[in-house]
Nucleic acid binder design. Structure first.
Length: 207
DNA sequence: ACATTAAGTGATT
DNA sequence: AATCACTTAATGT
Protein backbone atom coordinates (compact mmCIF):
# COMPACT_ATOMS: atom_id res chain seq x y z
CA UNK A 1 0.00 0.00 0.00
CA UNK A 2 2.65 2.52 1.03
CA UNK A 3 5.11 1.10 -1.44
CA UNK A 4 2.59 1.47 -4.19
CA UNK A 5 1.79 5.12 -3.53
CA UNK A 6 5.00 6.49 -2.14
CA UNK A 7 7.61 4.06 -3.42
CA UNK A 8 8.78 6.51 -6.05
CA UNK A 9 9.39 9.17 -3.40
CA UNK A 10 10.73 7.47 -0.31
CA UNK A 11 13.18 4.69 0.46
CA UNK A 12 12.00 1.25 1.46
CA UNK A 13 13.40 1.32 5.00
CA UNK A 14 11.47 4.47 5.70
CA UNK A 15 8.27 3.10 4.23
CA UNK A 16 8.54 0.07 6.46
CA UNK A 17 8.96 2.21 9.53
CA UNK A 18 6.07 4.40 8.44
CA UNK A 19 3.85 1.39 8.04
CA UNK A 20 4.40 0.60 11.73
CA UNK A 21 3.30 3.97 13.05
CA UNK A 22 0.95 5.49 10.48
CA UNK A 23 -2.81 5.65 10.65
CA UNK A 24 -5.05 5.97 7.61
CA UNK A 25 -7.69 8.65 7.57
CA UNK A 26 -10.52 8.75 5.07
CA UNK A 27 -12.29 11.98 4.32
CA UNK A 28 -15.52 12.85 2.60
CA UNK A 29 -15.99 15.69 0.10
CA UNK A 30 -15.87 19.11 1.78
CA UNK A 31 -14.76 17.61 5.07
CA UNK A 32 -12.62 20.09 6.95
CA UNK A 33 -9.40 18.40 7.95
CA UNK A 34 -7.67 21.29 9.67
CA UNK A 35 -9.20 24.49 11.06
CA UNK A 36 -7.34 27.73 11.64
CA UNK A 37 -6.02 27.60 15.17
CA UNK A 38 -5.91 23.82 15.44
CA UNK A 39 -2.76 22.38 16.85
CA UNK A 40 -1.89 19.18 15.10
CA UNK A 41 -0.10 16.22 16.54
CA UNK A 42 -0.14 14.26 13.32
CA UNK A 43 1.55 14.99 10.04
CA UNK A 44 -0.60 14.15 7.03
CA UNK A 45 0.51 12.91 3.63
CA UNK A 46 -2.08 12.69 0.88
CA UNK A 47 -2.32 9.24 -0.64
CA UNK A 48 -5.36 9.72 -2.83
CA UNK A 49 -7.64 12.61 -3.60
CA UNK A 50 -6.98 16.30 -3.22
CA UNK A 51 -7.00 18.88 -0.48
CA UNK A 52 -7.64 22.58 -0.68
CA UNK A 53 -5.53 24.86 1.49
CA UNK A 54 -6.95 28.27 2.32
CA UNK A 55 -6.45 31.21 4.58
CA UNK A 56 -9.32 32.28 6.80
CA UNK A 57 -9.86 35.47 8.78
CA UNK A 58 -11.79 35.90 12.01
CA UNK A 59 -15.02 36.58 10.10
CA UNK A 60 -14.78 33.24 8.36
CA UNK A 61 -13.88 34.82 5.04
CA UNK A 62 -11.57 32.67 2.99
CA UNK A 63 -8.96 32.82 0.29
CA UNK A 64 -7.72 29.79 -1.54
CA UNK A 65 -3.94 29.39 -1.49
CA UNK A 66 -3.15 26.13 -3.25
CA UNK A 67 -4.03 22.48 -3.66
CA UNK A 68 -2.38 19.35 -2.32
CA UNK A 69 -2.53 16.12 -4.26
CA UNK A 70 -1.42 12.51 -4.04
CA UNK A 71 2.09 12.14 -2.63
CA UNK A 72 2.14 15.69 -1.26
CA UNK A 73 2.34 16.84 2.29
CA UNK A 74 1.55 20.26 3.68
CA UNK A 75 4.61 22.31 4.53
CA UNK A 76 2.63 24.23 7.12
CA UNK A 77 1.80 21.16 9.11
CA UNK A 78 5.45 20.26 9.48
CA UNK A 79 6.30 23.37 11.47
CA UNK A 80 3.00 23.25 13.32
CA UNK A 81 3.79 19.82 14.63
CA UNK A 82 7.38 20.21 15.65
CA UNK A 83 7.08 23.72 17.07
CA UNK A 84 3.59 23.34 18.54
CA UNK A 85 2.30 26.38 16.67
CA UNK A 86 -1.38 26.81 15.88
CA UNK A 87 -2.32 26.14 12.30
CA UNK A 88 -2.43 29.26 10.16
CA UNK A 89 -4.44 27.62 7.44
CA UNK A 90 -7.57 25.63 6.78
CA UNK A 91 -7.49 22.33 4.90
CA UNK A 92 -10.60 20.99 3.18
CA UNK A 93 -10.99 17.78 1.21
CA UNK A 94 -12.18 18.46 -2.33
CA UNK A 95 -13.22 14.88 -2.91
CA UNK A 96 -13.19 11.65 -0.90
CA UNK A 97 -9.53 11.36 -0.02
CA UNK A 98 -7.11 9.09 1.75
CA UNK A 99 -4.59 10.55 4.16
CA UNK A 100 -1.67 8.96 5.86
CA UNK A 101 -1.26 10.33 9.38
CA UNK A 102 1.75 9.78 11.52
CA UNK A 103 2.89 11.21 14.85
CA UNK A 104 4.89 14.41 14.69
CA UNK A 105 7.80 13.16 16.75
CA UNK A 106 9.05 10.98 13.90
CA UNK A 107 9.49 13.96 11.69
CA UNK A 108 12.89 15.14 13.00
CA UNK A 109 14.26 11.73 13.61
CA UNK A 110 13.52 10.76 10.03
CA UNK A 111 15.22 13.92 8.81
CA UNK A 112 18.48 12.66 10.33
CA UNK A 113 17.99 9.11 9.32
CA UNK A 114 16.65 9.13 5.76
CA UNK A 115 18.02 11.06 2.84
CA UNK A 116 14.85 10.57 0.83
CA UNK A 117 12.79 12.07 3.65
CA UNK A 118 15.02 15.15 3.81
CA UNK A 119 14.70 15.55 0.06
CA UNK A 120 10.97 15.04 0.20
CA UNK A 121 10.51 17.70 2.87
CA UNK A 122 12.78 20.24 1.19
CA UNK A 123 11.09 19.66 -2.09
CA UNK A 124 7.72 20.05 -0.46
CA UNK A 125 8.70 23.46 0.93
CA UNK A 126 9.96 24.47 -2.45
CA UNK A 127 6.85 23.56 -4.42
CA UNK A 128 4.59 25.10 -1.77
CA UNK A 129 6.61 28.28 -2.01
CA UNK A 130 6.21 28.35 -5.77
CA UNK A 131 2.50 27.79 -5.50
CA UNK A 132 2.20 30.53 -2.93
CA UNK A 133 3.93 32.95 -5.29
CA UNK A 134 1.64 31.88 -8.05
CA UNK A 135 -1.40 32.73 -5.99
CA UNK A 136 0.11 36.07 -4.95
CA UNK A 137 0.65 36.87 -8.62
CA UNK A 138 -2.94 36.00 -9.31
CA UNK A 139 -4.28 38.27 -6.58
CA UNK A 140 -1.94 41.15 -7.35
CA UNK A 141 -1.82 41.16 -11.12
CA UNK A 142 -4.87 39.40 -12.48
CA UNK A 143 -8.40 40.68 -12.88
CA UNK A 144 -11.13 38.69 -11.24
CA UNK A 145 -12.30 37.29 -14.57
CA UNK A 146 -8.81 35.94 -15.28
CA UNK A 147 -8.54 34.53 -11.79
CA UNK A 148 -11.90 32.83 -12.25
CA UNK A 149 -10.72 31.16 -15.45
CA UNK A 150 -7.55 30.00 -13.75
CA UNK A 151 -9.59 28.69 -10.86
CA UNK A 152 -11.85 26.73 -13.16
CA UNK A 153 -9.00 25.19 -15.11
CA UNK A 154 -7.24 24.30 -11.84
CA UNK A 155 -10.36 22.47 -10.73
CA UNK A 156 -10.42 20.55 -14.00
CA UNK A 157 -6.74 19.69 -13.68
CA UNK A 158 -7.03 18.45 -10.13
CA UNK A 159 -10.39 16.73 -10.11
CA UNK A 160 -9.82 15.37 -13.61
CA UNK A 161 -13.28 16.25 -14.89
CA UNK A 162 -14.63 19.13 -16.95
CA UNK A 163 -17.78 19.00 -14.84
CA UNK A 164 -17.25 21.09 -11.75
CA UNK A 165 -19.71 20.46 -8.95
CA UNK A 166 -19.68 23.75 -7.12
CA UNK A 167 -22.21 26.48 -6.45
CA UNK A 168 -21.40 30.04 -7.44
CA UNK A 169 -21.27 30.81 -3.75
CA UNK A 170 -18.53 28.26 -3.16
CA UNK A 171 -16.49 29.65 -6.04
CA UNK A 172 -16.95 33.16 -4.64
CA UNK A 173 -15.78 32.00 -1.21
CA UNK A 174 -12.60 30.45 -2.61
CA UNK A 175 -11.75 33.59 -4.55
CA UNK A 176 -12.88 35.83 -1.71
CA UNK A 177 -15.41 37.55 -3.90
CA UNK A 178 -19.19 37.74 -3.77
CA UNK A 179 -21.71 35.41 -5.31
CA UNK A 180 -23.34 38.06 -7.45
CA UNK A 181 -20.07 39.05 -9.07
CA UNK A 182 -19.11 35.46 -9.77
CA UNK A 183 -22.54 34.69 -11.20
CA UNK A 184 -22.19 37.59 -13.61
CA UNK A 185 -18.69 36.65 -14.73
CA UNK A 186 -19.76 33.05 -15.23
CA UNK A 187 -22.75 34.24 -17.23
CA UNK A 188 -20.36 36.19 -19.49
CA UNK A 189 -18.24 33.09 -20.02
CA UNK A 190 -21.35 31.11 -20.87
CA UNK A 191 -22.41 33.71 -23.43
CA UNK A 192 -18.96 33.50 -24.98
CA UNK A 193 -19.52 29.76 -25.25
CA UNK A 194 -16.65 28.80 -22.97
CA UNK A 195 -18.74 27.10 -20.32
CA UNK A 196 -22.21 25.77 -19.66
CA UNK A 197 -24.02 26.57 -16.45
CA UNK A 198 -26.38 24.32 -14.57
CA UNK A 199 -27.55 24.29 -10.99
CA UNK A 200 -24.67 23.24 -8.75
CA UNK A 201 -22.58 22.51 -11.80
CA UNK A 202 -20.28 24.24 -14.25
CA UNK A 203 -19.24 22.44 -17.40
CA UNK A 204 -16.06 23.58 -19.08
CA UNK A 205 -15.84 23.43 -22.86
CA UNK A 206 -12.70 23.73 -25.00
CA UNK A 207 -10.58 21.61 -22.67
C1' DA B 1 -48.32 22.42 -2.77
C1' DC B 2 -45.06 24.69 -0.08
C1' DA B 3 -40.43 25.83 1.66
C1' DT B 4 -35.72 26.17 0.77
C1' DT B 5 -31.72 27.05 -1.72
C1' DA B 6 -29.28 28.46 -6.08
C1' DA B 7 -28.91 31.64 -9.64
C1' DG B 8 -30.19 35.98 -12.43
C1' DT B 9 -30.81 41.12 -12.68
C1' DG B 10 -31.18 46.26 -12.13
C1' DA B 11 -29.77 49.96 -9.50
C1' DT B 12 -26.47 52.21 -6.48
C1' DT B 13 -21.84 53.20 -4.64
C1' DA C 1 -16.08 44.97 -8.15
C1' DA C 2 -19.19 44.97 -4.16
C1' DT C 3 -23.70 45.34 -2.08
C1' DC C 4 -28.74 45.65 -1.82
C1' DA C 5 -33.03 44.30 -2.91
C1' DC C 6 -35.74 41.63 -5.45
C1' DT C 7 -37.11 37.96 -9.03
C1' DT C 8 -36.97 33.51 -11.08
C1' DA C 9 -35.71 28.74 -11.33
C1' DA C 10 -34.62 24.24 -9.45
C1' DT C 11 -35.02 20.98 -5.84
C1' DG C 12 -36.46 18.71 -1.52
C1' DT C 13 -40.33 17.29 1.71
Amino acid sequence: MLQEHLGYLLETDLLEEMAQVAKIRETTTDEIIVHVGDHLQMIPIVIEGSIKISRENENGEELLLYFIEGGDTCAMSLQCCTRKIDSQIKATAMEPSLLLMFPAEYMEHWLDQFKSWRQYILNSYHTRMLELMESIDAIAFMNLDQRLLKYLSDQVKILGSTEIHLTHQQVADDLHSSRVVISRLLKQLETKGEIKLLRNKIILKNF
